[in-house]
């Protein structure tokens, strides 16, 4: 492995760890935050056309198509949910 590749392999995780640390801090510090979008204001977010993954059987297939033909992989899903309308 070249020194350049080692550097690039290390840069990503370091940056990601920093982002995660900030994220965790924000989440922990914000536990008492009042929801700024009220449940009765989530009709548009709840619309099926706003779903991250409306048809999982189809998106799983297409991810497979790309992963078989491209070098990149991962981070194709989302956290799911988030609608908060149930």
């Amino acid at each position: 492995m070249t020194s350049r590749s080692l550097q690039s392999a290390r840069r990503g995780p370091t940056a990601a760890a920093a982002v995660l640390a900030v994220l965790a801090t924000l989440l922990l510090g914000g536990c008492a935050v009042e929801p700024w979008v009220k449940p009765y204001e989530r009709d548009r977010i709840a619309d099926p056309i706003m779903s991250w993954d409306r048809d999982p059987v189809s998106s799983a297939y297409l991810h497979h198509v790309y992963e078989a033909r491209e070098g990149a992989r991962g981070a194709t899903g989302s956290a799911g949910g988030g609608c908060g309308c149930n």
Partner: peptide, 9 residues
Amino acid sequence: DFFGDLTTL
């Protein structure tokens, strides 16, 4: 979910 379901981790 967190924050009145505004956030999902």
